[in-house]
Design a binder for these strands. Structure first.
Lengths: 209, 209
DNA sequence: GCCATACGTTAACGCTCATTAACGTTCTCG
DNA sequence: CGAGAACGTTAATGAGCGTTAACGTATGGC
């Protein structure tokens, strides 16, 4: 296979529009005719580029997961050993992604179950590795944090960072650098608080029914 | 109309199963036959209880939004004036909901666009009021926080608290009181960090392209 | 006893939609 | 030129699915 970074080809155009539409209306809520229309061709013309609608979603989700994992691994490799700095770098990388590719962030945790068994397992494996990478970084930065708590905290912070699609239309809050800085502070503050068992007067668990 | 809290009637049974299935496979991914089968009747028998599939989703989403807003308002009304305590109470209420009704939490921010215009506007209005209620509470607890930042922080913390569906199958992390306490600490830590502009060495916004 | 209501059933109907068939049109390169 | 890849088009096909029709059955009050 050849990995080209030459120009935005038709194929990439399709993927971008499909991501946007899937994020807006859900995988089952978008027809192939719509995707085709979004790139100027119509309907079955897409089948010159993809074997089917499923394949588009699969390529999107695998691509997202790989990009996230690769970015995380690169930052780990570039780390100078300071756990705090590594954690900050991971957070920045994720924020960058969440702010820049909101549609993909939305798909990432929403349409996973629409994949064929084999693709779904691949994506889940990539996601798991990415989570593990974070859990290790968090535990190095906050050694007092128990492993299950660290894992839950990582998932929760992902939820926090991935909230960018809820910040309203692009331009209002998304896009200005202050939002990235705010998200960074929120994430760091959450992790720091997780490590402090003695949080003072906070009552803790709410009463279940 | 009569509001009965007598027993789990067939209608409520349908709503519960529909919520579970919609959360698992998405609104468009579930057929009416499946919903019927889940409650022991089959297919079009559902139309004795609901005018259509849309109506089930609408009732679910409106119900969730109303319950969240009512719970929030109740806590505001019961507040003794301590902003910190009110914020903690709001967080506990939301955590209680997120841990107990994970399917509904999933639907709440995922299938909103599948509603008819009128229902969607209603749900959005309820959601907006709930957010406003939180924003006010946050700003009272942290007066230094600017309004847009407070709003973004609230959305982000919702994303954090609503991460419970990602915590794996019920029983592992969900359900034990420690998880509720952890989520509470994470949320409080995030808000506290949002208010501190001077967070030391944290670099801030990542570089967008 | 009997009619009305509540609650189901199975068998169409009709529409949407992914996929395939059959048929052009450039564009390139030998 | 002229063959053949690359890329599209419109028309059919066929399955899935929400909804409606037409048809039971128990139940409960008059």
């Amino acid at each position: 296979m050849t990995t080209r970074t030459d120009a935005p080809t038709r194929r990439e155009q399709i993927l971008r529009e499909a991501a946007r539409l899937f994020a807006e209306r859900g995988f089952h809520g978008v027809g192939v005719d719509e995707i085709g229309a979004a790139v100027g061709i119509s309907g079955p013309g897409l089948y010159r580029h993809f074997p089917g609608k499923d394949a588009m979603l699969a390529e999107l989700l695998v691509g997202i997961s790989e990009r996230l994992l690769d970015g995380g691994r690169r930052r780990v490799a570039e780390s100078d050993g300071d756990p705090e700095a590594l954690l900050s770098a991971l957070i920045d990388g994720h924020i960058d992604f969440a702010l820049h590719d909101r549609a993909l962030i939305t798909l990432h945790d929403r349409e996973l179950d629409r994949l064929r068994e084999t693709d779904r397992k691949l994506v889940r494996q990539l996601q798991r590795q990415y989570v593990e990478l974070w859990v290790e970084a968090v535990r190095r930065a906050y050694p007092s944090l128990a492993e299950p708590d660290a894992r839950a905290a990582v998932h929760a912070v992902f939820g926090l960072l991935n909230s960018t699609p809820h910040l309203g239309p692009a331009g209002t809050l998304v896009g200005r650098p202050a939002t990235g800085a705010l998200l960074h502070r929120l994430a760091r503050g959450a992790f720091a608080a997780a490590a402090h068992e003695d949080s003072g007067d906070a009552p803790g668990a709410p009463a279940a029914d």
